[in-house]
Amino acid sequence: MSKLAVSHPPFFNDSTVDIPTPDKFAGFTETAEVGWGSPNVSWRVAPALNIIVNGIHRRATIDTGSTGALMDKSFLPTFDPEEVEEGHVFYSSSKILEEGYWVPDVEIEYFGPRGVRIMSKTPVLAVERAVSCPQFNQTLHGHRCPKNATKGVVKRAVQQPYFGIGFGRDRDTSSQATPDRNPMINIVSINNVTIDRTKYHPGYIITHRSIIVGLTSNNTEGFVTMDLEKGPNWEKGQRAWAGPKVSVALNNETYAKGSQCSLLVDTGVTQMYLKAGREFQPDDEIKFAIPDEESPVATYTITNGGRRNAMSPTKVLNSTSLTPYVNTGRSFLTKFDVFFNPIEGQYGLRFKGSGEEDFVKFYPV
């Protein structure tokens, strides 16, 4: 984007990160900022938004590690299970399977402390029960945990609405995690006025104060963007992008060539999940280069179990992912704002540190 133009680092690779180009957001002016239910400077808790659904005020946890809004079926208008789609949301970190039905075209209103209101319209999963189902496989099991695989009912259903706004989550166990079910990229009105598709660019920005919907030249100032690859279900919906990439090195080892991991900045958890080459060990120093070490947008370092810094998760766990994978947890957001552009397929980072930190570096384009 032209407004971000500064000198390139010497290892800059034009094929990975956007170079200055005509502004993709020129002409788009409709946007709205909705403050979190409680400000989140340290990111010790998951962010939440105040909502109105079915005429009742509630608070919804906002999760970038999943896709799809879900809530107890009693929170939604009465529906006939025979007339709606059976469905599920599976959380790979906790192995919790939420079982229910997708109620179509549910309008959810979100409001902040300054009176700004936005509305989304998507299917919402009306949850009947939540179970621990470690071996869940949608191909084998459909949308329900088989009785012999259930580790017990965790709760009848979600006590607080839980809204997944992430992307790149449409894997085998979550093939229903499609863009049409992502509330924050399916906004239909701002302050009770229907959005103008010629002036509203879908997408969102996450900061410690708020979520901003509608991407503009002004609110994307300071971000560096990375182009995303098409996800496995691209043909089913052309906003189905894969997640961004990251390279990982342990201790003084070099970054392994060709071993980029899928990167997930997850507001839903405090811990990190890591699958990168060998398993990490206690007190390993872990280095990250986003998207890779040859043309980084950002680099940072944490020490598992040792000296902590602001971007350190509460703990690091070896991921059970079958492919290289890093879930940073939400501590990543102590030093970066992020944005998602679902139309052109971009992920953006904006550094909000002082520049004096010795554990993180940002390379603006």
Rank of each mutant, 00 (worst) to 15 (best):
H57C: 09
V224R: 11
K24M: 11
E128K: 08
N186K: 05
T301P: 07
F90C: 06
D196K: 09
T78H: 14
R144Q: 15
V188L: 09
Y300V: 01
N341D: 15
L4Q: 12
Y204S: 03
N218D: 15
W36R: 01
Q281G: 07
E344V: 09
E294N: 13
S175E: 12
K335C: 10
N191H: 00
L333T: 02
H201Q: 09
F75R: 08
T328Y: 07
V6N: 12
E98S: 15
T178N: 11
T122Q: 02
F12W: 11
P9Q: 13
L76K: 02
T314M: 03
H88W: 10
A310F: 09
D266I: 01
T198G: 07
G55R: 03
E229M: 12
T78F: 09
V326P: 03
S354T: 15
Q176G: 15
L125S: 00
E30G: 02
S94I: 01
L317V: 14
I190E: 03
V89D: 06
I165N: 00
F359A: 05
P123Y: 00
S312N: 09
N318R: 11
G243M: 13
I185N: 09
A60S: 08
P313G: 01
N148T: 10
M119S: 12
N251G: 04
E293P: 12
S210N: 12
K230D: 00
Q176F: 15
Q135Y: 10
D80G: 03
P146M: 07
E128V: 11
L125Q: 05
G277Y: 06
V106T: 09
D172V: 14
Y162N: 13
I51M: 06
P232N: 04
S295P: 02
A60N: 07
G214P: 06
A256E: 15
T150Y: 02
P47R: 00
T16N: 12
K335T: 06
D72L: 01
L264K: 10
I212Y: 05
I52W: 05
Y273W: 13
S94R: 04
H201S: 09
S295C: 06
C133G: 00
P10Y: 12
Q160L: 08
L322V: 10
L140G: 01
K147A: 15
T31G: 02
K95G: 00
T216Q: 03
T198V: 05
S319N: 00
I211R: 08
D14G: 14
G55D: 02
E253M: 10
E109A: 12
T320Q: 13
V53N: 01
T78G: 08
A26D: 11
P232H: 00
T16Q: 13
Q281V: 11
Y255F: 15
R169W: 12
F28G: 03
T194A: 13
E229S: 14
V131M: 04
F136G: 03
N318L: 06
I290S: 05
R114L: 12
